[in-house]
């Protein structure tokens, strides 16, 4: 067609669909981490003493602080969705921004925590690990770096979604009768929080 008309595709926005889609995506994330939890369980069962010994190396204080940080951030993001539902757009923007900053604080903590490990010569494949640690300890730290690293990556993704949510709130794409992006941003952030709630005891607390 030489002079075909301009065809717009239908706007398929549907709040219920978005919510189902996000929950399904959360299932996939749970399975992604679920596989890692299985690996963790197997190796912990095989090397109980070494896992205990290696866990002593971790700084429980930083872990606890980060747990509190994430719990607070879950609260602020939940408040932002409620704020939007009540029509307080500016408050919602402020709350998402605060959540973003708290996420950043988590990452800063994580940076220092990993930094201390590195300064002790602990990183995957380091000479200190290969020469002086038992196989169980190597596995513990291997899993520690993989699982907390993957979790930190999810924090970053969650923060990126927040940027889109804030942009949407500012330009009106996200509003009181179109809240899906912010809702899903919150759901995802809760997932990231929840995974940490499992990581924290598994690596820092269990003896």
């Amino acid at each position: 067609m030489e002079h075909a008309h301009h065809v717009e595709h239908p706007d398929m926005y549907d709040e219920e669909s978005s919510k189902i889609g996000m929950w399904l995506f959360i299932f996939t994330e749970l399975l992604l981490f679920g596989a890692l939890f299985v690996v963790y369980a197997v190796y912990r069962y095989m090397n109980p003493d070494a896992f205990h010994l290696a866990a002593e190396e971790l700084n429980r204080m930083i872990g606890a602080i980060n747990t509190i940080i994430l719990l607070i951030s879950s609260m602020t993001i939940a408040m932002s969705t409620t704020a939007l539902r009540k029509g307080h757009r500016k408050l919602a923007i402020a709350l998402v921004s605060i959540t973003f900053l708290i996420g950043l604080a988590f990452l800063v903590n994580k940076y220092f925590e990993w930094g201390v490990k590195f300064s002790h010569g602990i990183w995957p494949g380091s000479e200190h690990m290969l020469n002086e640690m038992s196989q169980g300890e190597i596995l513990f730290f291997g899993l520690y770096f993989v699982m907390t690293g993957l979790h930190a990556l999810h924090i970053i993704i969650g923060m990126a979604i927040m940027v889109f949510a804030i942009r949407g709130l500012i330009n009106g794409k996200v509003q009181i009768d179109r809240p899906s992006l912010l809702d899903n941003c919150g759901l995802y952030w809760h997932l990231v929080d929840l995974i940490w709630i499992f990581l924290f005891p598994l690596f820092y607390l269990i003896h």
């Binding site: 690996v39 190796y43 090397n47 995957p124 190597i138 596995l139 291997g142 899993l143």
Partner: peptide, 11 residues
């Protein structure tokens, strides 16, 4: 990185 999870040499 050689994290060791599937490497029998590292446990």
């Amino acid at each position: 990185f050689g994290v060791g999870i599937f490497d029998p040499a590292l446990g």
